[in-house]
């Protein structure tokens, strides 16, 4: 049953991820991304990480993608072909990546059969959110704070960039 669900979610994620870059209408791309976010959240649920699943939807589907759509609609790009004539560059980048991936995969199978991580997350039912909080604020406190600092810097940068035009005589 779990395998079946994983297969479904993984399949849809792969398909919609391809569609995001393959579709010509940017709105459809964004919607395909939305479907993908939902299936990633579904994958989290099958791994008993409900908190992550909810946060995934709230942050990515509920906020970030809405902003994307906002921008896409504001620019009102109709079928834009500019980004679809880059097969050579794409091939140049992707073929080495694919080769590396396959080599890694082959090596990985030979090296370790991958011990299945048992459902050790949470432990107590409902301790999922608690477990994430405790790990985040003890084991990974430093990376967590660094990440939040980076986000803060990015936010300040965005505000400064946006504010420059308000002065009136902004250089176009």
């Amino acid at each position: 049953m779990a395998q079946l669900f994983f297969g479904y979610f993984a399949g849809v994620i792969a398909l919609t991820a391809v569609l995001v870059v393959a579709l010509k209408n940017p709105i459809y791309s964004a919607l395909s991304l939305l479907v993908m976010f939902f299936h990633v959240a579904g994958l989290y649920v099958t791994l008993h990480a409900e908190f992550l699943a909810a946060v995934q939807i709230i942050v990515y589907a509920g906020a970030i993608l809405v902003l994307y759509l906002f921008v896409v609609m504001l620019l009102n790009v109709k079928r834009d072909d500019r980004y679809h004539g880059q097969w050579r560059i794409a091939g140049f980048v992707c073929i080495p990546l694919l080769l590396e991936f396959m080599i890694l995969l082959a090596g990985g199978i030979a090296a370790s059969p991958g011990p299945v991580p048992a459902e050790s997350t949470g432990g107590v039912t409902g301790g999922n959110t608690l477990a994430i909080g405790e790990t985040l604020f003890s084991t990974y406190l430093f990376p967590f704070e660094v990440a939040s600092l980076i986000l803060l810097v990015a936010m300040i940068g965005a505000i400064i960039l946006a504010k420059r035009d308000v002065g009136g005589d902004a250089p176009q």
Binding site: F51, I58, A61, G62
Partner: peptide
């Protein structure tokens, strides 16, 4: 267990 987050997630989808 994540009842309120569930509601927040889906109300944001309504947009």
């Amino acid at each position: 267990n994540i009842g309120i987050l569930y509601i927040l997630a889906f109300t944001s989808i309504g947009a």
